[in-house]
Design a protein around this nucleic acid. Sequence first.
DNA 1: GTCTATAATAAGATAGAC
DNA 2: GTCTATCTTATTATAGAC
Lengths: 211, 211
Amino acid sequence: MAEHNGVRGLGRTTRSEERKAEIIRAAMEVIAENGYRGTSLAVVAERVGLTQAGLLHHFPTKEALLVAVLEARDQWDIATATFSGTFWPLDMLGDLVEYNSGRPGIVQVFTVLAGESVTEDHPARPYFHERYRLLRELTAQSLHEEFGDRLPGGLTPQQAAPLVAAVMDGLQVQWLHDPEEVDMAGSFRAFVGLLKGTAGQDADHGPGASG
Amino acid sequence: MAEHNGVRGLGRTTRSEERKAEIIRAAMEVIAENGYRGTSLAVVAERVGLTQAGLLHHFPTKEALLVAVLEARDQWDIATATFSGTFWPLDMLGDLVEYNSGRPGIVQVFTVLAGESVTEDHPARPYFHERYRLLRELTAQSLHEEFGDRLPGGLTPQQAAPLVAAVMDGLQVQWLHDPEEVDMAGSFRAFVGLLKGTAGQDADHGPGASG
DNA sequence: GTCTATAATAAGATAGAC
DNA sequence: GTCTATCTTATTATAGAC
């Protein structure tokens, strides 16, 4: 914790930490383009002006780098209060999806990793297993706070929770393949309309996506 | 087409074709376990009692083998009439999902490949791009035949189509991670209830999936 | 903290014998 | 149709100099 060149508050910018953050960003880019298994440390290293051996000074193994990427995502989640036990109104999830549609890179890393993660010994497997479990639990809680035992559309929070995560993930895949054709945020909001039982009344959810 | 040892109807069992089919089955197993990028030809070869060079006699490159796996899936789709322009009632999609929940291996190959396929030069990329496009188109058509311009729940067929594919895919990921916790067919049928606007009335769709 | 050099594997693909 | 042998190229990780 103590730093030889003066005080620093909790979690602020060592040179070394800055370097690591830089490497993590590069790793996310390369994983988005090639998946974890298709990613080589040399390519990541090159993007930050290091050699492969130089990179391994900061992260001793390829797997350690992946773990850091995953932890960085959790940090982001916490920062945006997704996981701080905060109550998320259903309508605000549409805003989150819209926000994501401005960040195809981020969406792509985690879509690729989530797909790879179902394989036997993938190092991200435990992470995603737990992440989905927690996501369902917190979504169900949040829906319960907002609507009680039944959503207006008729589902229980427990029934709706896995569907919310599924629709988000599934739309991401289609959207990454065809951003012109697939209106990710619009489609998601149409789904929200279903959950709220207001899908027929023309709200502001757009014209859907396919054609 | 002509075979030196007698007549054979269209598409029946040369020794060579049987061998190929055997290899394709093995490849699907290995891809399910390791993804396409994580799959080595030597491992696939070993499962059918061949060497790596022996396998390459039947499929000249690794990519050719992947293409064959993808074509095999299309054959299956056609066989089960998914893509023959046949009309699929919404309720029957629940049966399809239930059928899939008895074949985790198949579900896993295509979940993994769909995830990998969003990366830059993945050889399955064009395949999935087109597959999702077609799936949305045919789903929208089918829903239109069944319900006309609006589903009972209020969405148009064009709005509902990408959601149907998204829910199927998204539930598969969660179910592969946690088959005990996630009731894939039950959750899907709850979603169908939403589309039909009958989610509140207790139909036979189960108690959802999450804890 | 970063490099060069290198070890240790592993992979896809080709050549040519049987 | 299948094998052995080999080429070529990548990749993770380590050792040790600067």
